Simulated assay, not measured.
Amino acid sequence: MPLTADVKAELIAVRDPRPTARVAELTALLRFSGGLHSIAGRVAVEAELDSDALARRTARELMELYGVRPELVHVQGSMAAGGPRYAVRVIEAGETLARQTGLLDPRRRVVRGLPNRLTTGSRPDLAAVWRGAFLAAGTLTDPGRSAALEVSCPSSEAGMALVGAAHRLGVAAKAREVRGIPRVVVRDAEAIRAALAAMGAVRAAAAWDQVRQRREVRAGVNRLVNFDDANLRRSAQAAVAACARVERALEILGEDVPVHLEEAGRLRLAHRDASLDELGHHADPPLTKDAVAGRIRRLLAMADKKAEADGIPGTESAVPAGAAD
Rank of each mutant, 00 (worst) to 15 (best):
His271Glu: 09
Asp228Ile: 07
His281Pro: 05
Ala274Pro: 08
Ala238Thr: 08
Ala244Met: 09
Arg272Ala: 10
Leu224Val: 12
Leu224Pro: 04
Ala241Ile: 07
Gly280Pro: 04
Glu247His: 06
Val225Thr: 08
Ile252Glu: 05
Leu269Trp: 09
Leu253Pro: 01
Leu253Asp: 00
Pro258Lys: 07
Glu263Thr: 10
Leu261Trp: 01
Leu253Lys: 07
Pro285Ala: 02
Glu262His: 07
Ser275Lys: 08
Asp277Cys: 05
Arg268Ile: 00
Glu247Pro: 05
Pro285Gly: 04
Gln237Pro: 10
Asp277His: 06
Arg248Pro: 00
Val257Cys: 15
Glu262Pro: 02
Ala241Gln: 03
Glu262Leu: 12
Asp256Thr: 11
Ala270Tyr: 09
Arg233Glu: 15
His281Asp: 03
Val246Ser: 00
Leu269Gln: 06
Glu263Cys: 06
Leu224Lys: 11
Arg233Asp: 15
Ala270Pro: 02
Pro258Cys: 07
Ala239Phe: 07
Leu269Asp: 05
Arg266Ser: 04
Leu250Asn: 03
Ile252Thr: 00
Ser235Pro: 00
Ser275Val: 11
Ala283Tyr: 03
Arg272Trp: 03
Gly254His: 09
Arg233Asn: 13
Cys243Phe: 06
Ala241Tyr: 01
Asn226Val: 11
Asn226Lys: 13
Pro285Tyr: 10
Asp256Phe: 08
Arg233Met: 12
Glu278Arg: 04
Glu255Phe: 10
Phe227Trp: 14
Arg248Leu: 03
Leu276Arg: 11
Ser275Pro: 05
Glu247Ala: 14
Val225Pro: 04
Asp277Pro: 05
Leu261Asp: 02
Ala264Pro: 03
Leu269Glu: 01
Asp256Ala: 07
Arg268Met: 00
His281Ser: 04
Ala239Tyr: 00
Val259Lys: 09
Asp284Met: 10
Ala236Cys: 13
Asp256Met: 12
Ala238Ile: 03
His282Tyr: 13
Leu279Arg: 01
Leu232Met: 14
Asp256Pro: 01
Arg233Gln: 13
Gln237Asp: 12
His271Asn: 14
Asp273Ser: 14
Asp256Lys: 14
Ala230Pro: 00
Asp277Val: 09
Asp256Ile: 00
